[in-house]
Design a protein around this nucleic acid. Sequence first.
DNA 1: TTGCCAACCTATCACTGATTGGCTATCACC
DNA 2: GGTGATAGCCAATCAGTGATAGGTTGGCAA
Lengths: 226, 226
Amino acid sequence: MVAPIRRPPPGERREQILNAALRLFAERGAGNVTTRQIAEAVGISQPSLYAHFPSADAIADELCVRAFAALEARFAAMLAKESDPRQQIDLLGRAYIEFGLEHPDMYRIAFMPTRVDYCPPGMVFEGGAFDFAATDPGLAAGLRAFSALRGPIVQMCGRDDDEVVVIAQAVWASVHGLTSLLIGKPFFPWAERERLIRAVLDMGHALVESRRVVDAGVAPEPLPAA
Amino acid sequence: MVAPIRRPPPGERREQILNAALRLFAERGAGNVTTRQIAEAVGISQPSLYAHFPSADAIADELCVRAFAALEARFAAMLAKESDPRQQIDLLGRAYIEFGLEHPDMYRIAFMPTRVDYCPPGMVFEGGAFDFAATDPGLAAGLRAFSALRGPIVQMCGRDDDEVVVIAQAVWASVHGLTSLLIGKPFFPWAERERLIRAVLDMGHALVESRRVVDAGVAPEPLPAA
DNA sequence: TTGCCAACCTATCACTGATTGGCTATCACC
DNA sequence: GGTGATAGCCAATCAGTGATAGGTTGGCAA
């Protein structure tokens, strides 16, 4: 009862595990896949997985990092092909949403976390350098991709200060919000998807334009206070 | 080894269970609380929980519905006290975000779902009447609260057509996006919270204003196409 | 040939949510 | 005062989860 080939090339088993996991995730949803199912799909015992990955989460994390690396490359190609910053923001936002809808499990793992182990209640970021990439590789990969937004926003706003960070994070929040809701609540009676995406992207454009610096060095007129 | 009082008033045990669960959720995060912990906190055996609730999720669902009912009431009070629709939108959005940050576990359960049992891959809402409230009481409660947004938007836009739905859902997406990110990624180096909230709310205002109907019956000028 | 080592397997652990079957205090009814 | 029904409870147990321990095997380098 021994496997015919006992010593596959190094790294191949690892790749087989990742492929099997990816397929099972897509079929049943990441949360409904067990280590035993992955092992069976590969043709090895469940404990053998731990020779290649330190934990079950590590498998998901690696798939997540790979998926977002692909998105990052897509972003870079877009920025290289399109030079108008407004168009760039639109393309990036749209690609981001589409990516989330095409890879809902990877998006979930990166941006809709359920693991709160490392997040005690009331804990928030207090400033300074916290190496979240080490504890959350999925988030880090996703953010590396999204950081492509910064350049176009700087160009559109004509500024490169901390307000750009606020704008980028707000735009990110809106795009993430739509993506995560569409993923998480597929049965909800959503408006036509294209119109929704258009509206969310328009929100981002409006924010960027409202905070553009008209005269160099002069703060832009703020939106009328509510 | 019998309990001193064997027959507490009907419904009291149920309430004790909900209170204990709520406290444990706040202490350790909803995902890190087991049925045995809840039972121990109440002082009963773990199987006894199932005499009051059909499943562990049902406990969380009920807490969720109650929390959002409180938010709904808060919304209604705000709408009654403030008449300016622009101010109303601002107050509702801000209260929504604050609610999510104050009750992260309830917000998670309602809007950051991990249960994908009822959502096969690629499945999306196809229109028509789907009774999502029956399968997702948390979502239903959250949406009843958020539906308060519709009125102010109708007033601000001077229209009551399907575009209002698009606008409301887009605004909801942006507010939800910020809320869920702040909850899910507390360690991320966020910009100053108040500025972030202000930016997201401003995005909503800008969208509402850009789609306002200026002349009755005449479509508003669209944003310049990207 | 020898020795090492990575990959593997069987057996098992602690823990999860959930079910079963029996016990008992209480209450409505006679 | 019985008497049966029932709601609430508990011990025992189930299947399934991720993870660990320890022994075994094949292949490669010295």
